[in-house]
């Protein structure tokens, strides 16, 4: 089957929004995809539980860069609660669709966002420090490998 990126994906790949680093961020996260080994970093500036600024870095494929671009667009200006409820399917929809083999890239982007928010919640004492167990990691990553059966 021929699989293509649509023009909107290409546009975000060529000129990604919100790309870069925030110095002294209020929260940050670096997550990796167990599917292909790519990584994404998310930096947040938060004011009154609203995401004032968001930036990302990506070591990943075109679809990874494009979904990070769109997910950060979606999250900007939202409350933490709203941002936490952003689903990878929304990001895909917003981009006008992704090839199924690339769904996991969008999951990675959403995961990065959630991990950064959780980092903030933890830092502000609203989430307990999680103990990192391999089971937990596996569960966290399960829906990255199998996005359609994922937590969303």
């Amino acid at each position: 089957m021929s699989i293509k990126y649509n023009p909107k994906v290409i546009e975000h790949f060529k000129n990604p929004h919100n790309q870069g680093v925030i110095e002294n961020p209020d929260a940050e996260a670096l997550v990796g995809s167990p599917a292909c080994g790519d990584q994404i970093a998310i930096y947040l500036k938060i004011n009154n539980d609203v995401i004032e600024d968001i930036k990302f870095e990506s070591y990943g494929c075109a679809s990874n860069i494009a979904t990070a671009s769109i997910v950060t667009d979606l999250a900007k200006g939202k409350t933490l609660e709203e941002a936490l409820s952003i689903k990878w399917t929304e990001a895909v929809q917003e981009l006008g669709g992704l090839p199924p083999v690339k769904y996991h890239c969008s999951v990675l982007a959403v995961d990065g966002l959630r991990a950064a928010i959780k980092d903030y919640l933890r830092k502000t004492g609203r989430l307990p420090e999680e103990e990192l167990s391999s089971d937990l990691v596996r569960e966290e990553l399960y829906h990255v490998i199998y996005p359609p059966q994922g937590l969303d």
Binding site: M1, S2, I3, K4, Y5, A62, P99, V101
Partner: peptide
């Protein structure tokens, strides 16, 4: 050769399709 994503690869893949 057919493959995903690149112009060359998808052109070949579409021809097969």
């Amino acid at each position: 050769a057919p493959s995903s994503f690149t112009y060359t690869g998808t052109t070949a893949a579409e021809a097969i399709e």
